[in-house]
Write a protein that binds this DNA or RNA. Structure first.
Lengths: 201, 201
DNA sequence: AATTTCATCTTGACAATGACAAGATATCAC
DNA sequence: GTGATATCTTGTCATTGTCAAGATGAAATT
């Protein structure tokens, strides 16, 4: 197995397409994304991707799905290196991981949150996205001592925190905060902690 | 002038294309947006739009530009009907206008903030976007009594508020808050005021 | 071991799209 | 009234997504 070249059967085309797809996405953005460009990059015929991902939406959904998994991993990674195990510090750390991912994979980040929750969405995508959000809800649950699903006040916390970190990530990634060349942003992480503190209340 | 039909020269094609373009955008989203579909809707040839907006990016930029103007108008409209002239209430009102626009024109809202601030951006687009942000900065200036451009603490306020309202609008519009079917969201405006209050600090 | 079966990948085709060039038509300047 | 210009159309080409049919190689069956 795992023939990577010169073989009629690629051996691991699915993974290769995902990797190439992410590269194309990062380089051209979702608007310049092309199935044929991905296929060409892997060195495979133009319609090979269809057998693995169906149509273009299928490959993008798969990318978004993997994105959500790495998204969750990024939050957990930040929490792992956070020395304090205090729920509040851990929650802030996961926010920093949120931002890490957005900054590290801006195009993928946009794709994930633009992936229309429309009709025939992938089941895996839904699950992966849900898992990411659950992680945030869990963090608030540990902080407040109640499940957000049973305490509206805690759910308000969840949404406030989520809105804050997501909004900042979106604006930061889209470069709209740049022209302000503002002083508080010199320390990006410190600034996020500052405003997340407000959101937590 | 203003011949709307049966004339070789449309008379007001530019405006008609913008109107149709917004309709197509709202119906199909930016990924399904097509210059030819816009032209067909107006009843002109497939390459008529090029003479007014250059390429597809030009029409989308024009739509985003007009979007930012209406965006600003939506914020001002909410402030106008806000009985209190207290700076804090006015700032909250502009946040509600922000959300009004996002909910009323979700596809346009996404387009505006996805419009890559990349290389050859339209001058008008930059100006319109900038005017929207300035309005927010002005609101904070009135509240704090200092220009955010001179007081880092006030700039932090601007970014915190902006991140909060933008994040909430994005998540709300993309429908990701829906599955939570959470209680606090029953009163959408009230909820936004609640979390914006936290952002202001 | 030979044959069948099946997943995998390729080739070829078609319609839709963005972009461009060249031409047609109406409005405007003089 | 005549030419100049802005506006719009037609025709064309390369690219793209999608589908259908065929080619290839691996695995399963006998």
């Amino acid at each position: 197995m795992l023939k990577t070249k010169d073989s009629y059967h690629h051996g691991d085309l699915s993974a290769a397409l995902l990797k190439a797809g992410e590269a194309v996405l990062a380089e051209t953005g979702v608007e310049g994304f092309s199935l044929r460009a991905v296929a060409k990059r892997v060195g495979v015929s133009h319609s090979a991707p269809a057998h693995h991902f169906g149509d273009a939406r299928g490959l993008l959904d798969a990318l978004a799905t993997e994105g959500f998994r790495r998204f969750l991993a990024a939050m957990e990674a930040r929490q792992a290196v956070e020395p304090s195990k205090d729920p509040r510090q851990q929650l802030l750390a996961s926010g920093l991981g949120y931002l890490d991912f957005a900054v590290g994979s801006p195009a993928l980040f946009r794709l994930m949150f633009a992936a229309e929750r429309s009709h025939p969405k992938s089941e895996e995508l839904t699950a992966a996205a849900r898992a990411s959000f659950m992680h945030l809800a869990d963090g608030v649950a540990r902080l407040r001592g109640v499940s957000p699903y049973q305490a509206p006040a805690a759910m308000t916390d969840v949404m406030a925190i989520w809105s804050m970190v997501h909004g900042f990530a979106e604006l930061y990634v889209s470069g709209r905060l740049g022209p302000l060349d503002c002083q508080p942003l010199a320390d990006r992480d410190g600034f996020l902690v500052e405003i997340l503190d407000r959101a937590i209340g």
